[in-house]
Write a protein that binds this DNA or RNA. Sequence first.
DNA 1: TTGTAGGCGTTATCAA
DNA 2: TTGATAACGCCTACAA
Lengths: 326, 326
Amino acid sequence: MPTIKDVANKAGVGIATVSRVINDSGYVGKKTKEKVLKVIDEIGYHPNEIARSMTRQKNHIVAFVLPNNKHVFFSELLYELEQILFEDDYKVMLCNSSEETYKEIEFLNMLKNNRVDALILLTNNDIEDEIDSKLPIISFDRIIENVPLCTSDNYTGGQMAADILIDKGCEKFLFIGDDAQGVNTPVNTEVSKRRIGFNERLKERGKKQIYNFEYPLGNYLIQPEKAREVLLKYPDVDGIFAISDAVGFTLIKELEALGKNVPKDVKVIGFDGGSKFFDYGRKLSSIAQSPKKIAKALRDMILNFSDNQPVKDIVLPVKFNEGDTT
Amino acid sequence: MPTIKDVANKAGVGIATVSRVINDSGYVGKKTKEKVLKVIDEIGYHPNEIARSMTRQKNHIVAFVLPNNKHVFFSELLYELEQILFEDDYKVMLCNSSEETYKEIEFLNMLKNNRVDALILLTNNDIEDEIDSKLPIISFDRIIENVPLCTSDNYTGGQMAADILIDKGCEKFLFIGDDAQGVNTPVNTEVSKRRIGFNERLKERGKKQIYNFEYPLGNYLIQPEKAREVLLKYPDVDGIFAISDAVGFTLIKELEALGKNVPKDVKVIGFDGGSKFFDYGRKLSSIAQSPKKIAKALRDMILNFSDNQPVKDIVLPVKFNEGDTT
DNA sequence: TTGTAGGCGTTATCAA
DNA sequence: TTGATAACGCCTACAA
């Protein structure tokens, strides 16, 4: 691999001049510039980004720590994030924690070691003690002291779900989901606001028959047997709000297996987006987050970190995607 | 951030000694070692990986260039790859090309810029001219001269599909899929061997009624209208081999919409895995690739690159996952 | 407008 | 066993 020195030698100039040319900085004579560019092309010189990172102590990499890139919503978010950061010449490092504490911590160390420009953290464990809030960390969906937060408006989303079910005539409600989200230890998650918003709005509007079933989901899914058990336990429920689309879908399948008609007997609303599942059966009504908007918000936060600007929390709006299950 | 120098000063030793301690290399006195480790802990020293990469001219990063991490099969492969490389302390950089030529090329440049130890390339465009085969590039599913290849045994997979459909009594066959896989320009892809293996085995076993429908899929999906059009064009077909599960699913939906019974009237086999779709409706019979095995093979190839060992092509076996569509 | 030299934080070589 | 010191490739004062 040719270096800046090779270019300088061959062009008969100093390395500083070559540096100025490739960075388009400082004064460079027109002819000199042309000559340098020609040599660069001839010998196929590419600046060594590692060396650049060395002086800058930044490597233009953003690490995204998440439970699992296979999950539909996460995969969309990951995709949008990578797409938008590409425009600013940031690269995305994929860090699947598989919900393991030791992996989350290892990735945190990577931030310290690798000097990534920023780390986006979607934890499933209580690793607050491991976090140095002076580092460029952004939390997605988890509330961590002194760490800037990006999330969707889960509380309003819960309220919306309540309003929709009430307006459609439901009387007996069930929320089903994983409140803790932590596998090994509970984490303080934004996601629980879905339940809280749902419950509070129901009460505000005078509804009394509300069941909450909080089940520690493994891998963000509910086992069909468990779902059926819950449905059998609350057979008179006619309005269900599921913490995610994935859970919502399992519920619908089990409801139908139990001979219920969705949405006639029971209405179901999920959370995340719904559209992703359209190809595979029912169109699930869902409170939708926008992966694209989230990605943009994260990008803005990252750029603020880079510019040493203050990084403020961002809460993004959700919207109702009507399917055929309400 | 403290540096190796800070550790050396505080411990009253030279930086070389500290280096030996953190790398566990060379001789270090027991007491010296303890002292150094204590200081490292006290001041919270983390070796700067950028500087390490500087001397090594390697950064322990593998770039994975793929069309889109949202696709089910790719997302599984990505996940498995990240998981397995984590064990060897490699980080994975996600590079979505979105099937765009300029992005693929930009990611190739990243490799030249010395950022990554290896680059796994799943292209959708003819960028062979841009590839320097002396660089640590591994091609997945695409045949590129002088670039080591990792792929599943698509040819045998096609043969298997033929055998299964024949054995189940089918007489009139349809292959449907995207042979070129290139969006802008055709690429020489391993994937077309699915069709070739299928056709050749059918002929070997004396079958004459074989239709091939090669449709340039955008985004790896087939539009439902297009699928229906094809099915109407070949109404007497009773055995279908789809290039992917995603295409297979669309076909099943359209077949059912046309009043056909799957598998009674028409049998359908997909390719990739099948199980991923189990939750959302039919259990599609499928020639399954193993993302885990592929990831392991890729890991081995990467390690060989690192050790300057020869890197040989790897072709992995596929197996038939029986669902309820055959 | 250009070139020299020091520094970024490590590793590796070579004396001591 | 240790510790200077020279790379690694680039950027950036500072000088010329």
